[in-house]
């Protein structure tokens, strides 16, 4: 859960919540229907979107080893699934703790930076076609943070 919300619940024994804190909570609760809808849409369109990305990626990088392309796609699937959950619970840290160090290391060992960068561009294009601007605004903070962190991890 978002650290700001989590810290609110830690205050139960100390005091009642201030109006500003309740506002943060209400904002999250009000955003939940849209978050759930975005999550469902991601779940239902995952394979279709990622297959299009995979086809485009292969077409754009025909000389790249299939094993590297597949690894990059697998990592992107993991990333998308974790970002979907991170979006649902409004917590960028969720992706960091569960996944970034993990796939960052694989990506470094197999040197997939160039492929990853291109894949993210294609994936983000797919997302803009499937989701509304409002839905994208929920997903993008988590996704952009994760993608940027992973691409930067490659840099020496």
């Amino acid at each position: 859960m978002h650290p700001q919300l989590e810290s609110i619940f830690d205050e139960a024994e100390n005091r009642y919540l201030h109006s500003e804190e309740l506002t943060v909570l209400s904002q999250y609760v009000n955003s939940l229907p849209e978050r759930l809808e975005t999550y469902r849409k991601l779940r239902d369109n995952e394979l279709d979107m990622m297959q299009k990305v995979a086809d485009q990626l292969h077409a754009e990088m025909p000389t790249e080893e299939i094993a590297v392309l597949e690894l990059s796609i697998k990592n992107a699937l993991l990333l998308l699934r974790h970002c979907s959950m991170g979006m649902l619970v409004n917590d960028v840290g969720f992706v960091q703790n569960r996944l970034l160090n993990w796939i960052g290391q694989t990506a470094r060992v197999y040197n997939t930076q160039t492929v990853d960068a291109r894949l993210y561009r294609l994936l983000n294009q797919q997302l803009t076609q499937v989701f509304t601007p409002k839905q994208l605004s929920l997903l993008q903070p988590v996704l952009t943070t994760a993608q940027t962190a992973l691409l930067n991890q490659h840099s020496p």
Binding site: L47, M50, Q51, A54, D55, H58, E70, I73, K74
Partner: peptide, 9 residues
């Protein structure tokens, strides 16, 4: 062609 479905276990 890379099949995304096949990449999932």
């Amino acid at each position: 062609m890379i099949s995304v479905t096949d990449l999932l276990e």
